[in-house]
Amino acid sequence: MQALSPVETYLQDFHQRQPGATTAAFAHLRARSSVADYASSYAALAAYVPQPTVPLTVLDLACGDGHLLKLLSDRQGPSLKLIGVDMSQGELDVARATLPGHVVLLKERAQELSVETGSIDCVLSHMAMMLMDDIEQVIKEVRRVLRPHGQFATVVGRGFLLGDVSEILLGVLLPILKEEGTWFRFGDARTRTIDGWTELLARDFENLQFEDLDVDWDPLPHELWDSLTETYDIDRLSAPSKTRLRERFIHALSDLQRSDGTIRTGWAIRLIRAQAKP
């Protein structure tokens, strides 16, 4: 595997320390759009894979702890072959301990897959592609491994927190990030817009579809804070800065609390679907 970039090095370290963080944040929350309601953002991707009546091979790119693969394997379809790829050994160790033995797991970068050309019917990816270096090479690899007319679907962030909470968090977080000088941007800016994704996919894919999803959540302040500590920008702060941020953030949330103490928020994400050109 090629030497990791600084961003990849950090991501690998984070997921070694906190495997399953993405599953913990998203697997228990419903995801809804103007046209559909899903049990979770993972379920939105799983729904894209048909019940196979013929042999079908699915690749989960940046599979993490294997939650999406588990949803698919629980279907018990005899013709479904599952492959997971991730660059974090910590995540893959958790996946291996929870998934059936027939699920293939590979420690690889998305930019250089060992998977055979034209061998995959469907490539899925959950909350990862907007973080990846050299996204054009990633997309080339996705197209390379897909069969003609193969399906591609990914869930990516389209923002951050829903509602007024987002503005409050940024108001207290940005000054601290500037003080520490630890902030850096992950991935390619084009992955944050529909126009950007259209540009990235247009050469090798057709029938592009975009579905904006809201992952609704009504946490108590301490539950929201605990979840935010497993986001990358906050994870990278020093302990004193985390303490200052928590105090300011919890205080600022008081005006948003409802009678039961909870806060209306959630995550803003986007489901993207496309078909490989023949």
Rank of each mutant, 00 (worst) to 15 (best):
A47M: 06
A47E: 14
A47Q: 11
A47I: 01
Y48F: 01
V49C: 05
V49W: 03
P50N: 09
Q51M: 00
P52W: 05
T53M: 04
T53C: 05
V54W: 00
V54L: 04
V54D: 10
V54C: 03
L56T: 09
V58T: 04
V58P: 00
L59C: 13
D60V: 06
D60N: 11
L61S: 03
C63L: 04
G64M: 10
G66S: 07
G66T: 07
G66R: 01
H67L: 00
L69P: 06
K70S: 10
K70F: 09
L71C: 07
L71Y: 11
L72G: 01
D74E: 12
D74K: 09
R75Q: 11
R75N: 06
R75W: 10
R75V: 08
Q76K: 09
G77Y: 06
L80G: 01
K81Y: 01
L82R: 11
G84C: 10
V85R: 13
Q89W: 08
Q89D: 09
G90E: 10
E91W: 04
E91M: 12
L92F: 06
L92I: 12
V94I: 13
R96Q: 14
R96D: 02
T98N: 15
T98E: 12
L99C: 14
G101M: 05
V103E: 05
L105S: 10
L105T: 12
L106Y: 13
R109T: 15
A110G: 14
A110Q: 06
Q111A: 10
L113Y: 14
S114N: 08
E116Y: 10
E116V: 14
T117V: 07
G118K: 10
S119Y: 05
I120A: 03
D121T: 04
C122H: 10
C122Q: 06
V123S: 02
L124R: 03
L124A: 03
